[in-house]
């Protein structure tokens, strides 16, 4: 570590000013717009049943995404790290696809597959009385899609690092495959899973584009928190838009803080 030189003061100054103008000040403005422009818009927003509903829809859908992606992420993580099979590299590369696709394209893709009118699988499903798109399951599909690889990516490096010594030892002592999984493998990746779950939750709660297309955004039914922000903003209820925005920002910052706390735990395990 070098001592502070004039050059380092300039560097730090540039970085701090840049981050303040791009992130810090704008984030501060949300707090200001929510609480210090005449009304307490947060209380007002939370008293509105349609907004409370939007918050619940968001949380419920994010919860489903966490369950699906944790099961998939842990399963696929173990398969990719512990086994050899043809197409492994391709599968690993494809698993990253969901985070690289534009959210609006995700919405379009789900619409084409599961839309009730023209959807390849959606139309027959609709005839059988199952509607996915423009209802809650559609929102679940969308947020599960966009947050798909986050648990997987958190789990893989830890699985690689812990190696197979303990697993092999347990097996040689007569433990069954299921016992090894439950008693050795899963406990040793629990912090990585927790880390991935927090990221998944944050991503799923904050999804907008994909949900916008597949949910229909029906107030009191399929409206999520982000869609409500857009509706409020367009309806010139700016204060309440900022209030819900503030709540979402709070979730994001909380997620980041938790993730920072979880990070060192991985190394201790």
């Amino acid at each position: 570590m070098r001592t502070r030189t004039p050059a380092s003061v300039v560097r730090i100054g540039v970085v701090v000013i840049y981050l303040f103008l791009l992130v810090g000040w704008p984030m501060g403005r949300v707090v200001q717009e929510t609480f210090f422009t005449g009304e307490n818009y947060l209380t007002m927003a939370l008293a509105d049943p349609s907004l409370r509903n939007a918050v619940w829809v968001t949380l419920a859908a994010a919860g489903c995404a966490v369950v699906f992606n944790t099961v998939l992420g842990v399963t696929l993580g173990i398969l990719l790290v512990r086994y050899q099979f043809p197409g492994k590299r391709l599968l690993s590369a494809l698993a990253d696809l969901p985070t690289s696709v534009s959210p609006i394209v995700v919405g379009l893709a789900l619409l084409l597959a599961y839309g009730p009118v023209h959807g390849v699988l959606g139309a027959p499903l609709a005839e059988a009385g199952v509607q996915l798109i423009f209802s809650f399951p559609g929102i679940v599909l969308a947020v599960t899609f966009v947050s798909l690889p986050l648990v997987l990516r958190a789990v893989i490096p830890v699985l690689q690092e812990i190696g197979t010594d303990q697993e092999t030892a347990a097996q040689s002592l007569g433990a069954s495959g299921g016992q090894v999984l439950l008693r050795i493998t899963l406990p040793s990746i629990r912090w990585a899973v927790a880390y991935g779950v927090v990221l998944t939750l944050a991503r799923a709660v904050g999804e907008f584009g994909a949900v916008l297309v597949v949910s229909g955004g029906i107030v009191n039914q399929t409206e999520t928190a982000t869609i409500a922000v857009q509706r409020l903003h367009q309806g010139f209820e700016t204060g309440q838009a900022y209030a819900i925005g503030f709540l979402l920002a709070l979730v994001a910052v909380a997620a980041l803080v938790i993730v920072t706390i979880l990070r060192p735990h991985e190394r201790n395990d």
Binding site: P26, V30, V229, V253, T260
Partner: peptide, 24 residues
């Protein structure tokens, strides 16, 4: 500073637009 850098990762992008709109 570390936290500020990661905020764009976690902040819903719609809210990012709203937040920037309040300053710019």
């Amino acid at each position: 500073v570390e936290l500020l850098i990661d905020i764009p990762f976690a902040l819903p992008s719609l809210v990012a637009g709203l937040v920037l709109l309040s300053l710019y």
